[in-house]
Simulated assay, not measured.
Amino acid sequence: MTGGSGAPVVVGPPRWWRWPGLVAFAAFLALAAAIKIGHGIAAVYVGLPLAAAAAVPCFLTRSRLLLLYAAAAGTGVALLAHGNPRDVGWFALCVLEIWCVAVGGLVPGLAFWAASMTLLAVEGLAVAPDPGWTAWASGLTFSVFCALLLRQQLVLLERLREAQADLAERSRADERTRIARELHDGIAHSLTVSLLHVSSARLAVEHDPQDAARALAEAERLGRQSLTEVRTVVGLPRTGDRVPPPLPGISDLKDLVAQLRAAGVDATLTLDGALHTLPATTGVTVYRIVQEALTNATKHAPGAPVAVRAQVLPDSVQVDVDSAGAPGHGSGMGLDNMRERAAAVGGTCVAGPGGGGWLVTATLPLERGDAQ
């Protein structure tokens, strides 16, 4: 069988099962040999070494010659227990049958079963007619069913382990994506605004030192804020913090726009409707979309006025970010993040030429009663 990654999955008993299997086979073999001594010396000298020599690679290695080794070991068992349906050595044949099915699968197991049944039939019909051979045939067949059940459980176990590994890898990938998106949306905005303040300070340092100092202080504050956001996103504890900072929402849009105004960006904000009644998840989505849209407008259309409007409609909340400038070409990660955030709450987000130049429009559905 193959796993979810396309690689073949090896199904079979774990390594530590090999020794108990070999020990069980050897125990029945030794017991049969002990009983046979004095009654069949030739069988002991031939059958015992043959069965033992073939059993070692049969149980301890995963060889394509499994069926050949099992046949050789079975031949040794047959020589040792020949002609006696009450010989415990036939239990060793059942152990071999279980091992062939568990390790090799159904086809090798059935092949060994057919050969063993033929052997028992010959023993019962031509060598020593006795009802006891029927019991061994039944036991051998029962061993096949037990081994098939064992192998099925091993298959399920391998699939479960593979599913757990896939789930863990998917969780790690989702976490990396979440961290990357949060860092991109939050930190990129803070850094963009910080750069605006630094640029303003550089221009004002000679003519208006106080304004330059104010701009640098604001840039420093945003830098510290970015560091806090990084710690929050990646889950690093901060000394003295017991409760993580709350997630941003609709009420934080005014501060977001005020930051841009303080950095010299001509930004306006219009809020229509009972936005304060929106669910927290929708509020965070609106904030992040506006934040990313403002960051893109500031980077790609510096100096152009930006208008933000959020309004509650009967069945949805609509957010428009209209930049008067024509933005350049970015990596596209920000647009993808906005679309993914909108889709996560069942909404849509489109961006392209429109409005005064470049328009971002997000429509997020509302359940009845959300905006009441």
Rank of each mutant, 00 (worst) to 15 (best):
D315L: 00
P248V: 10
V95W: 07
T118L: 14
V107M: 11
A24C: 07
V88G: 05
L256V: 10
D130H: 14
P237G: 03
V46S: 15
Y69A: 11
A114S: 14
M333W: 07
T363M: 02
A128K: 09
H189A: 13
W113Q: 13
W113I: 04
A274I: 03
L148K: 02
L294R: 05
L196G: 06
A371Q: 06
K299I: 03
V88K: 00
K254M: 07
G124N: 01
A263T: 05
S171E: 15
R288M: 04
T363Q: 11
Q153I: 01
A326Y: 01
G109H: 08
W99E: 00
A53V: 15
G369M: 02
V319Y: 02
Q152N: 11
G357S: 01
V10R: 15
E158T: 06
W16D: 10
C100K: 08
P131K: 04
S5W: 02
A219D: 01
L31V: 15
C58S: 12
D322Q: 09
F59D: 12
A52G: 08
D185C: 09
A81G: 05
T361D: 02
T239L: 13
G273Q: 02
C146G: 14
Q259L: 08
D185E: 12
A53D: 06
D166S: 12
S226T: 11
D166K: 04
L149W: 10
I98D: 00
